[in-house]
């Protein structure tokens, strides 16, 4: 109990640092680029255009509102890979700071997840533009979006903490993870219909957390459907599991980081 209260008071003391780290990431990202923030809006739109051309022209999956169908999956998955990859490198990158000053180390992966979260919000705005442009109807269920973002943040934070710990000890974690995310992406129905995974890969459907998150998101954006209690519990529990496991791994290993960076 005491440990937890120490953790919280530490978090409270350093919450401003967390904000500074997040704003640093965002500033550096958009400084000195001509289009600035506009890139975050433009990038997913360009991606979507390519994907729509390729998949509605070549493969002909029978999906209604394909641009938005793709968009919903794409922005969530991009957020996940971006935040976890940045989070994974965050500890090693900040080695010169960690070597000199005492700071709660979990702030580094956490700040990366939050700054990717800001990017996710920009992508979300881009999606709204595309929805207007393609004449997709807006439903009030879309107001549930913060909930799914919260579940996803838990998952991303947990995974980042695990990966960051691994990366400190084994620098080839990054290589392995990039291959793994590629596999993960193909096992997630981002640009193909969920039914394609069918019976053969049913395990992938139930165990892949992203399937649940993306389905949830599509329900509220495209289907005007309030996700069931079971869906909410599944997403929340999956997020919490990763988050708690990540914290445990991180806390057990963090005192040794300094010897390896």
């Amino acid at each position: 109990m005491k440990k937890i209260s120490v953790m919280f008071s530490g978090f409270f003391k350093y919450k401003d640092l967390l904000m500074e780290l997040v704003s640093r990431d965002i500033k550096i990202r958009y400084r000195r680029s001509v289009l600035g923030l506009f890139w975050t809006l433009l990038n997913p739109i360009l991606m979507m255009t390519v994907m729509t051309l390729v998949f509605s022209g070549l493969f002909r999956f029978d999906i209604e509102n394909f641009p938005i169908y793709f968009f919903t999956g794409h922005i969530l998955f991009t957020f996940l890979t971006e935040s976890t990859t940045n989070g994974m490198h965050s500890i090693v990158e900040s080695s010169n700071l960690i070597n000199k000053v005492y700071i709660p180390k979990y702030l580094f992966p956490l700040s990366k997840v939050l700054s990717s979260g800001v990017n996710l919000i920009f992508s979300f705005v881009a999606m709204i533009f595309v929805m207007i442009a393609t004449g997709v109807k807006f439903y009030s269920t879309m107001l549930l979006t913060p909930l799914i973002i919260f579940y996803l943040l838990l998952l991303a934070a947990g995974l980042s903490l695990i990966l960051a710990s691994c990366q400190v000890f084994f620098r080839d974690t990054a290589q392995l993870y990039s291959v793994f995310t590629l596999l993960w992406m193909y096992l997630t129905p981002i640009f193909y219909p969920v039914s394609l995974l069918g019976d053969k890969l049913k395990i992938a459907l139930t165990l892949n957390p992203m399937v649940h998150y993306i389905t949830y998101f599509r329900n509220i954006v495209l289907d005007n459907k309030v996700p069931s209690l079971q869906q909410n519990i599944t997403c929340l529990v999956m997020g919490l599991m990763f988050f708690c496991f990540g914290l445990c791994v991180f806390y057990r290993k963090q005192d040794k980081f300094i010897l390896h960076i």
Binding site: K13, Y14, D16, L17, M19, E20, L21, R24, L97, V101, I103
Partner: peptide, 12 residues
């Protein structure tokens, strides 16, 4: 100044 100050544990 703000980044390093918060690193040292001061508030904004």
């Amino acid at each position: 100044i703000f980044l390093n100050g918060t690193v040292l544990g001061y508030s904004r």
